[in-house]
Design a protein around this nucleic acid. Structure first.
Lengths: 201, 201
DNA sequence: ACGGACTGAATGAATGATCATTCATTCAGC
DNA sequence: GCTGAATGAATGATCATTCATTCAGTCCGT
């Protein structure tokens, strides 16, 4: 028994993706509960048993899905060059890129955004998953320290920064998902205006 | 055995409260799923069948619990007199009362705060519940309009205001629940500083 | 080229648990 | 004895998970 339940490398990689995509769709539509493995398999076009060739359990699948979605968001988020272009180091424009990209992802990827919220609130995430997530955040932290050092951002504890930057995005998405309002570009701009006042020197 | 002299005619009101309290405890600890009705009944010290004398279904119970918790939060929140005390209408101090009270509730009522997040993300809330929640918010809206009229707050769409006011609180609570950090008074003060910049004229 | 083991991915009916919900029955107070 | 709250075993569904079996390739000896 030298094996491990962790990485499932050999079998078709596309199939793993298909399972995760199917699970994401169903969980976003019906909730973490009410998304039975049988339905996930059907949605992915495979048999139930096959899912268990790729993930040792439903819980493990969901944790993997959570990290997968987070990674997608972060790579989408950091595709934008923060201020690479050059001449005028316009702090507000750079912050707009950062913030608007984050907001756009959450608004455009309703399913992924909802999955993140569901996983975080439901206590299904393992310590391992949480630790991995923190290690992902660590990289973003560096950019933040740098921005502060260059005087582009007010100095504050990183948790405060994150709360002021991402908190309003989460709140907007939550209101939209509750059907309370549409999030127009106008609302985004006005919210960003507040975020700027909070974060810029 | 000796019960209260006042005979509560219909089903005991205290029992309803006991059921909601038990459900809150279990759902916060184990998640919306993994909180079976049998466990809720046991935690409340009654039989399973009895729960169904007070709620027609588990879903209805959870919706009722959600509104119950929201009402508790809102009444806690609006117990503080906004600026009644006296002379100088200090906008910042008034905002601090409002914001800090909201933040304190979410930090001190971990179970309730988590329940709100779980319910909102899981799609278990009925249209009726959502509508009722919106009608609760309508009352707070009046205070906001008033504050803007008196020049205590910058003018902005109400969704933007809420995102900038409550979003950072949700984010802080989320980070605390994930075990990433403790939320000290220092962090609260610094976050509030950002919120002020965002909201005050 | 050919056939006949061999391999391991894929299958899905079967299993064993766990739930939400019901209802025949009990029981306390009037 | 009557009323209706309270009970909790029983019911019927729904799941997550398993595993005996299928099947499409691959390899090798001839």
């Amino acid at each position: 028994m030298a094996e491990t339940a962790t990485a499932t490398a050999k079998p078709n990689l596309d199939k793993r993706e298909a399972i995760l995509a199917a699970a994401l769709r169903l969980i976003a539509r019906f909730g973490l509960h009410n998304a039975p493995m049988s339905a996930v398999a059907r949605e992915a076009g495979i048999a139930v048993g096959t899912v268990y060739l790729y993930f040792p359990s439903k819980e493990a699948m969901i944790n993997a899905l959570y990290l997968h979605v987070l990674e997608e968001r972060n790579s989408f988020w950091r595709r934008e060059p923060p201020a690479a272009t050059d001449s005028p180091p316009d702090a507000r424009a750079a912050l707009w890129e950062t913030w608007h990209t984050l907001a756009r992802w959450h608004l455009e990827h309703e399913e992924g955004s909802n999955l993140i919220a569901q996983c975080r609130a439901s206590g299904i995430l393992s310590d391992e998953t949480r630790a991995f997530e923190q290690s992902m955040d660590a990289r973003a932290l560096v950019l933040y320290e740098q921005a502060v050092a260059e005087g582009h951002l007010r100095s504050m504890p990183r948790y405060v920064l994150w709360a002021l930057l991402a908190g309003p995005v989460y709140a907007l998405v939550q209101m939209r998902d509750a059907g309370e309002t549409e999030i127009t570009e106008e609302i985004l701009r006005e919210t960003f205006d507040g975020v700027c006042r909070a974060l810029l020197p």
